[in-house]
Design a protein around this nucleic acid. Sequence first.
RNA 1: UCCGGAGUAGCUCAAUGGCAGAGCGGGUGGCUGUUAACCACUAGGUUGGGGGUUCAAGUCCCUCCUCCGGAGCCA
Length: 436
Amino acid sequence: MKCEERMDRVYIADIAEHEGKEITLKGWLYNKRSSGKLWFLILRDGTGTIQCVISKADVDEATFDVCGELTQESSLEVTGNVSPDKRAPSGYELQVTRVKAVQIARDYPITPKEHGTAFLMDHRHLWLRSSRQTAILKVRHEIIKACRDYFDSNGFTLVDTPIFTPAACEGTTTLFETDYFGEKAYLAQSGQLYSEASIGALGKVYCFGPTFRAEKSKTRRHLTEFWMVEPEVAFADLDDNMDLAEQFLSFIVQRVLENRSEELKALERDTAPLERVVPPFPRITYDEAVDILRKNNVAFEPGGDFGGGDETVISEQFDRPVMVHRYPAAIKAFYMKRAPEDSSKALGVDVLAPEGYGEVIGGGQREEDYDTLVARIEEHDLPREAFDWYLDLRRYGTVPHSGFGLGIERTVAWICKLPHVRETIPFPRLMHRLKP
RNA sequence: UCCGGAGUAGCUCAAUGGCAGAGCGGGUGGCUGUUAACCACUAGGUUGGGGGUUCAAGUCCCUCCUCCGGAGCCA
C-alpha cells in the first residue's frame, strides 16, 4: 500500500517520462494565478517547476476552493494528468484532479518582485528557494564534485586536516581565536602544513574543508568562512604544480559546462569565455605582470602584491586563466622556496581567473631544506617551537614538493559570473553577517 | 581601520523647508488559458535613535547606530 503511494510520487524533472499518466507531485507553491473558473498553480519541488491547471468544471468544489486558500510557499501535494502543452516553458503541465494542502504559509516575506541584498540576506534561509539561488547551489555542487572526482581519479588520497589549530599557518593573516580548554586555539586558515605532512605517507593528497580568516575585508571577493580544496604532491616542482593547476581548473570548468548548462542558462551566463578554459594557460612571471601594468598606465609600486584592480588588468590581456609566478619573496609566506636563479623571488604561483574575478588559486613549491626553513622561520619572527613537527618533515626523508589551494566561492562566482561571492555559499559569513 | 554612499508602509522607491505618496505584496470582489496575469475597491507610517535650528524638518546642522560599495589584506 505504502509502496504503491511512493511509486506514484514523481519529481518534476522526470515529468516527461509520465506523459498521459496520472501522477502526484509534492512541493511548494511558487506562484499562482486565477482566471475565474481556473486556477494556475506554479509548483516547484527542487528539481524544477511546472504549471498545474485546475478547472472548476473538472474538480469538486472543495478541491477548487482549496486553491484559493493556497499562498506563496505553501507546501502541497497535487495529483493530476501529465499533458504536453506548447505554452508551458517546460513543455508540460499538470491537469489537476486533486490538491492537498500540507501547510498554508502565512505572509511569505520574499515576493516575486525586486528586493535589496540586505533584505534578501536577512532571509537567506528562504531566499535559497528562488530559482536563481538554486541554480547557483547546483553549480556549486557540481564544482565541488568535480574537484573530488578529479583528485580521486588521479591517484590523490583525501586527508582531512584539523580546523582547530595551535598556531598561525603562515603568520600573515588574522585568525579567529577560540578558547580551547584554557588554551588558545585558532580556526584553520589552510590545511597546507598538514597536507605537507600527509604526502610523506601517501605521496599525493588533498584536503577539502572550510577555512577562516578574521580579516575585516569588505569586498565582493571576501568571506570570513570559505571553502578551499588543497592538493599537495611529493616530488613536484613549480612547473609540475602549474601543470596540475591548469589541468584541474580546466576539468572543473568543462564538467560544469557538460552537466549544468541549464543552470548556466538560467543564470544568463555567456558560456563562450568558459569554453576557452583549456590548457595550456599562459604563464608569466611577476616581473612580466608588472610590465603589463606599466604598459596600461596603472599606478603600481613594484615589489608589492597586486590589488583587485591590478589583477583585472593583467587577466584582461588573456582569453583564459593566467598563471603568474615568481613573486617577490618578501611578500610571500615563509615556507615558499626561493627561485634558484634569483633568491629575491619565491616559487609561488597565483592563477587569475578571467573577467575580473582575480585570484582563484594560490600556491607554489615549498622549501624542503631543513636549515633554510629554520632561517626563514627566524626571519619571519615566527615561534620555532610551534613548527617543530613541521621541521621534522625536512629531517626525515625530505623531498621537493608543491601544492596549491583553490577557493571554491571565487570559482563559483566566476563560473556563474556573479557580482559577489556571498551568493555562492548557502549561508555566507561576512564581517557584518553571522545570521541566519 | 580608512574613503564614499544609503536608512520613509511588509518590499522597492518618490516627496522645492509647507497636507507623507506610488508600484508590488496583504485583504475583499470580478474574470475559463494565465505566464512576475489583469481590473476594481481596501487596510497599511513614531520617515533608523537622540539632540538642535525654524512659525514649520522626511528635507538643514550635530551626534550615535545599522547596512551597502570600495581600499588595505587575502582565496
